[in-house]
Design a protein around this nucleic acid. Structure first.
Length: 598
RNA sequence: GCCCUGGUAGUGUAGCGGCCUAUCAUGAAGCCCUGUCGAGGCUUCGACCCGGAUUCGAAUUCCGGCCAGGGCGCCA
């Protein structure tokens, strides 16, 4: 090792020491005689000074000046010199190394940098190059303090999580990434087999079946920082490949799994923030989440709860409401208290009506409370009794603004939930730096696809039902971890009875033959003493993004894919040589080629 | 597959029918400067995504494409 210190290390106690620093030239300031170089690395920035009048006898000032002239911005350089105190009054208090500087006695250019395509030095707030240019030159983007801190945070987080789990007898076990393509779920990334032409692996979408087989195998407590692959379109919080903190435990109940996650997060919290995390997390039932927040991942950082006013507002002599009620629909209300309501004028109300339509609602009905009654364009359809009961049901006070949403149950809940989120954002009700964890519990086992009418699972087909399958509205033993309106992960107890598992497959419309073909190995495994077991997987990318205040998980991943699933760093996906395809006995026909043939 | 937003010097932006030979900052190149720290001063360089249309005239309007991002679908 040639360098004696990092660029974040030197303090006044080092004054007089002969040191060697290596790093990147972040800024340099040439004053004609004396010149300053801000030398940066992951750990910090140290000021190096070229001072021709203060050099030791044996130093070659001319040569040194010449070398320093070659130090372009962002070049990797090495400097040797003596640590000295800064001239009184010129200390930089913002920088931990700001009381000292290194008087350069010799220097070397290690790796010259061309003119950077953007400025790496920390920018004014909010002024960043466009994401495409950051991605193209990701290695320069990564030099930014912000990126370094995020990746450091991520590394520490994962380390602390591992530390906790290892201390609780969990074993980190790697499961295959090359596996079998299964019919359900997300699209697979397909990998051709050379040895068995015409057959294919699929990249793992999750270690689900393998971790369950580990439980059958008696490993008892498993975890893995697992890369998962899904060939679906990206979002700001969805990437084609992403990382889950995956775990599974045997001989447990739901609470054991929740306790483990809470304990782990509390441990991480303590280690990273030095603060206690409030545990246990609150539990909120799926039903309550939908009725009160219009979402299965409610943001609990603010109020603006939804209220069911079907029985009250449904009595109004208002054609739209009557029609909806007669079709089994519901009416939800949001009360916006006077202090906030006065910021919403007539024009804003119209904008919310437009927004409501955009999120799948028919519209919204509004009224304002004044002098103990309600006013709006449609209030004439509401009898005094209806108005009175609305006021009392929602505890309306003068100045409050009411939004009412009517329509089919689920669509109305979700639409109203969207309006709730928009209101909170517009009215600045979302506090910064607050983390509201919650467990979403009592989820249904199945739901019916509104388009196809087919039965699908709410989570996945391996969730253990809480009651016999022939009963109505069976609940699953599953639970989602929700943080600030985002789903971080989903856990459950699993089915450990092969016959029950077969029955679930069959209820999902899978033929016995298909179940055997795709899951035969797994069903067989369940038949050899599968212990009761369960587990959970947390989306690490999302969690890190939330904890570091990033808008997209791309900012928590060193080399993410872009919106169209391309990697700009190695220009993938790309064509492969014909010989390679031949060896795999694969023919590639792009749609354009097909059209040419026709 | 669909919808929305955007694309102006290397970077970040202003301009939104004629004041555009296009603003400002930063950068780069050169010069000056011995205590700066996102140094400073002076000079110079450098851009309207592509193709069509409308118009006397288009960075600006319209149409088509390309690129980027956000969303819907999709994500058991």
């Amino acid at each position: 090792m040639i360098r004696t210190h990092t660029c974040g290390e030197l303090r006044t106690s080092d004054i007089g020491a002969k040191v060697c620093l290596q790093g990147w030239v972040r800024f340099s300031r040439d004053h004609g005689g004396v010149a300053f170089i801000d030398l940066a690395d992951r750990y910090g920035i140290t000021q190096a000074v070229f001072d021709p009048e203060d050099l030791p006898e044996d130093a070659d000032a001319g040569n040194l000046a010449e070398t320093i002239r070659t130090f372009t911005r962002e070049s990797a350089v090495s400097v040797r010199g003596i640590v000295r105190s800064r001239v009184a009054g010129t200390e930089d208090e913002r920088n931990p190394t700001g009381s000292v500087e290194v008087l350069i006695t010799s220097a070397e250019l290690l790796g010259r940098s061309g003119i950077p395509p953007f400025e790496v030095g920390d920018q004014k707030e909010g002024v960043l190059p466009g994401e495409d240019i950051r991605m193209k030159y990701r290695y320069l983007d990564l030099r930014r303090t912000e990126m370094i801190r995020t990746l450091e945070f991520r590394s520490r987080f994962v380390h602390m999580a591992r530390q906790y789990l290892e201390s609780r007898s969990f074993l980190e076990i790697e499961t295959p990434i090359l596996g079998r393509s299964t019919p359900e779920g997300a699209r697979d990334y397909i990998v051709p087999s050379r040895v068995h032409p015409g057959t294919f692996y699929a990249l793992a979408q999750s270690p689900q079946l393998f971790k369950q087989m580990l439980m059958v195998g008696g490993l008892d407590r498993y975890y893995q920082v697992a890369r998962c692959f899904r060939d679906e379109d990206s979002r700001k919080d969805r990437q084609p490949e992403f990382t889950q903190l995956d775990m599974e435990m045997s001989f447990v109940e739901e609470k054991d799994i929740q306790d483990t996650i809470e304990g782990m997060l509390a441990h991480v919290w303590e280690g990273i923030y030095g603060k206690k995390l409030q545990i246990p997390f609150r539990r909120i039932s799926y039903k309550e989440a939908m009725w009160s927040y219009g979402s299965d991942k409610p943001d609990l950082r603010f109020g603006l709860r939804l209220n069911d006013v079907t029985d009250v507002a449904g009595k109004a002599d208002y054609e739209i409401f009557r029609r909806i009620i007669s079709k089994g629909g519901i009416i939800l209300g949001i009360r916006i208290e006077a202090a906030l309501a006065e910021r919403i004028g007539r024009n804003e109300v119209d904008r919310y009506i437009d927004y409501a339509k955009k999120v799948g609602l028919g519209g919204l009905t509004w009224m304002r409370a004044k002098d103990g009654t309600l006013e709006s364009n449609i209030v004439k359809y509401f009898s005094p009794e209806v108005i009175k009961s609305l006021i009392s049901k929602l505890s309306v006070k003068d100045g409050d603004l009411l939004f009412l949403f009517a329509g089919p149950e689920k669509a109305t809940q979700e639409g109203a939930g969207q309006v709730r989120l928009k209101l909170a954002e517009d009215l600045d009700l979302v506090p910064e730096g607050v983390f509201e964890f919650a467990w979403l519990v009592d989820c249904p086992l199945f739901e019916t696809d509104p388009v196809s009418g087919r039965l699908t699972t709410f989570h996945h087909p391996f969730v253990k039902p809480r009651s016999p399958l022939d009963e109505k509205d069976v609940k699953g033993s599953s639970f989602d971890l929700v943080l600030n309106g985002t789903e971080l992960g989903s856990g459950s107890l699993r089915i450990n009875d092969p016959d029950l598992q077969r029955k679930v497959f069959s209820m999902l419309g899978m033929s016995e033959e298909k179940a055997e073909e795709d899951f035969g190995f797994f069903l067989e495994a369940l038949g050899y003493g599968a212990p009761p077991h369960g587990g959970i997987a947390l989306g690490i990318d999302r969690l890190i993004a939330m904890l570091t205040g990033k808008d997209t998980i791309r900012d928590t991943i060193a080399f993410p894919k872009n919106k169209r699933a391309q990697s700009l760093f190695d220009d993938s996906p790309a064509k492969v040589d014909d010989e390679k395809l031949e060896e795999l006995q694969i023919m590639s026909i792009a749609i354009g080629d097909l059209e040419d043939l026709e």
